[in-house]
Simulated scan of single mutants.
Amino acid sequence: MSMTFSEALKAAMSNRGISLRKIADVAGVSYEQLKKVGQGKSRSTNVDDAQKVASALNMTLDQFLNGGIEAPNTIAIAGRVGAGAQVPVFDAYAKGDGPQVECPQGLSPRGVVAVEIVGDSMEPIYSAGDLLFYTRHTHDCIPDDVVGHRCVVEDEDGMGWVKQVKPGDEPGLFHLISLNPGATTMWNKRLRWAARVRLHWPAELTRKV
């Protein structure tokens, strides 16, 4: 049975353990309006804002108004990556056997995997526990379309990183630019593979299943 927007909002906050302000920030809607709805001072909100709130919670509007009872698609977490620290646990799980997380609204789960951020060296862009979603198209080369973009990469030593990939000084070498301006750039590194980040999802909104 469908809930009112206010009931669905309260259910989402309770089920996810997320604050109203965080929902408003991620959804890009007015916190004051959502607050009025939650306090019963406003009976509802407009359809566009309702859709934004549902999308921020990884749900369709119908799922949101039904308490999220429809089973969403899931994506496997492949492992963990860092920016300024050695993280040798990138492929910590066999393919597809890692923990599962709900697929964010608007992203097809086909061919997509996620990695979890370790440490705080990518603040304020990415935080510990955040998930990055990517599609790895190749297994033995670096596609041209990754150059100049934020990528999940694995270096020749098997370490996982999140860096901006730039051409190196010689063919087959790459400069890995840190997202934090204060961190050290990795010069002329050989990579096993690199894949562009398709979506960043804050830790507060992820839901492992």
Rank of each mutant, 00 (worst) to 15 (best):
M1F: 02
E7N: 01
K10V: 10
A12W: 06
A12T: 06
M13C: 09
R16T: 06
I18F: 08
L20T: 09
K22E: 06
A24V: 02
A24L: 03
G28R: 10
S30Y: 14
L34F: 10
K36H: 13
K36S: 06
V37N: 02
V37A: 06
G38V: 13
Q39A: 10
K41V: 13
S42I: 11
R43M: 10
T45Y: 13
T45Q: 08
N46F: 12
D49C: 06
D49T: 12
A50W: 04
L57M: 03
L57E: 02
D62P: 00
Q63T: 02
F64S: 00
G68F: 08
E70A: 02
T74H: 00
I75M: 00
I75P: 00
A76N: 00
G79W: 00
G79T: 00
A83Q: 09
G84N: 01
Q86T: 02
Q86I: 03
P88F: 09
P88Q: 04
P88G: 01
F90A: 00
D91E: 03
D91C: 00
D91K: 05
Y93R: 04
K95R: 14
G98W: 12
P99F: 01
Q100N: 02
Q100V: 04
V101N: 04
E102P: 03
E102I: 14
C103S: 05
P104V: 07
P104I: 10
Q105L: 11
Q105E: 12
S108M: 06
P109S: 05
P109V: 09
P109G: 04
P109W: 10
V113A: 05
V118D: 07
G119W: 15
G119P: 08
D120K: 15
S121E: 12
S121W: 14
M122Y: 09
Y126S: 06
Y126A: 11
S127I: 07
A128M: 07
G129V: 11
L131G: 05
H137P: 03
H139V: 15
C141D: 14
I142V: 13
D145W: 15
V146P: 04
G148C: 09
R150W: 12
R150T: 14
V152I: 15
V153M: 11
E154H: 11
D155M: 15
D157T: 13
G158A: 09
G158S: 10
M159H: 11
G160F: 14
V162I: 13
V162N: 07
V162F: 14
V165E: 09
P167M: 14
G168D: 06
G168E: 07
E170Q: 14
E170D: 07
P171E: 12
G172L: 12
G172M: 12
S178D: 05
P181Q: 09
P181F: 12
A183F: 01
A183L: 05
M186G: 03
K189N: 03
L191Q: 05
W193P: 07
W193L: 09
A194G: 09
R196M: 05
L199H: 08
W201R: 09
A203M: 03
E204T: 07
E204K: 08
E204V: 03
L205G: 01
L205H: 06
K208C: 01
K208Q: 03
